[in-house]
Design a protein around this nucleic acid. Structure first.
Lengths: 197, 197
DNA sequence: GTCTATACGAGGATAGAC
DNA sequence: GTCTATCCTCGTATAGAC
């Protein structure tokens, strides 16, 4: 059995990890190969061996992020939590990010959308699509079970909720006590809308 | 009487106009003095005469934006519209921006928050404060008139609504038919929450 | 107020040695 | 895989002429 605790991460993974933290904190235009270089401990020319261009790097970043996100959603689906608690858990993903100054990667890149290459724009669209599909399915289940109602549709509610969570992250980070502000914005609304009667 | 229609805008105003469009579209790190230079028709060195540094320029930009925003809000307050329609008008400010690919200036800068100088961060905080105060006041009026109820407070509802509008703008811009997507996310929720019984 | 010229660093990217 | 060395462009900012 492999010791995953003490196993060194490979360089490509380290690069993605550092890049992700930087994009989620500063955005696409405000991080550089030089920044990654310092934190990973290799020269910036070496990064090109793993990711030929910055655009390629960010494309892979979004792809990995989407897969991670889907895994996190699946864990929520497969938990034995009540449906209303699953909605809360979904919101918690955003709150937890904010606690370490991390905005959703795709919320940051949505802000940078106009300067991104087509390949990255496509990955972002896919991210929003799969996130919305997953959440829509959850909300529809709750609607079917008569726990709440969706206006005008589970799909629209899902879009609106994701928008709310991403907007709340952005707004909260400019406030002192970001996490508190986020919680006060998000959870009362969730409880009013998606709770068992 | 001055002919404001045909009066040439002064250079400083032209610079701010162009800079604003660029920040709202691309973000803080992705626009440059060279970009402004081309659109205004002066050399980039000349811009420094009007705004000594980029940070100074953006600080003035946020200040002007906040004042414009407050004027727009005051026009809504002073209209004879019903309170629920005033909420719709507030949301319309965001929809109208999106129609010309323009995200709220302070939503964009909230994404760039980590790389902004303190002076600009302060202006952004003030923007959110005054917007929230204005909207909170409106929501409280509706609550007093028993048109709707605020949970847990008008202040929290105002914060949440602004987060929703800004998040919806960001999410919508990555979709085909941005404006339609925005409207479908925002207006059903507004009508459910803030409408006359 | 606006210009030219220039300084100086940072940006992404490549070539070739090891 | 990682290094050094280098290229070329773009970034903000300044000095000094007009």
């Amino acid at each position: 059995m492999v010791d995953t605790q003490n196993m060194e991460k490979n360089t490509a993974t380290q690069i993605l990890d550092v890049a992700q933290e930087m994009v989620r904190n500063r955005g696409y235009s405000a991080f550089s190969y030089a920044d990654i270089s310092k934190q990973v401990g290799i020269r910036k020319a070496s990064i090109h061996y793993h990711f030929s261009t910055k655009d390629e790097l960010v494309k892979e970043l979004v792809k990995r992020y989407r897969e991670d996100m889907m895994r996190a959603c699946d864990r929520i689906s497969q938990s034995s939590l009540d449906l209303d608690q699953q909605v809360i858990q979904f919101a918690n993903l955003y709150r937890n990010g904010l606690e370490s100054q991390q905005i959703c990667l795709c919320a940051m890149l949505a802000a940078d959308y106009a300067v991104l290459p087509q390949s990255v724009q496509n990955e972002i669209q896919t991210f929003f699509q799969v996130a919305e599909d997953w959440l829509s399915n959850l909300l529809q289940q709750g609607s079917d079970a008569r726990l709440w109602t969706c206006h005008p549709s589970a799909d629209q509610e899902a879009k609106g909720l994701i928008a709310m969570l991403q907007g709340a992250q952005l707004l909260a980070r400019s406030q002192t006590n970001s996490t508190d502000t986020f919680e006060q914005m998000v959870y009362p609304l969730l409880k009013a809308k998606f709770s068992k009667p």
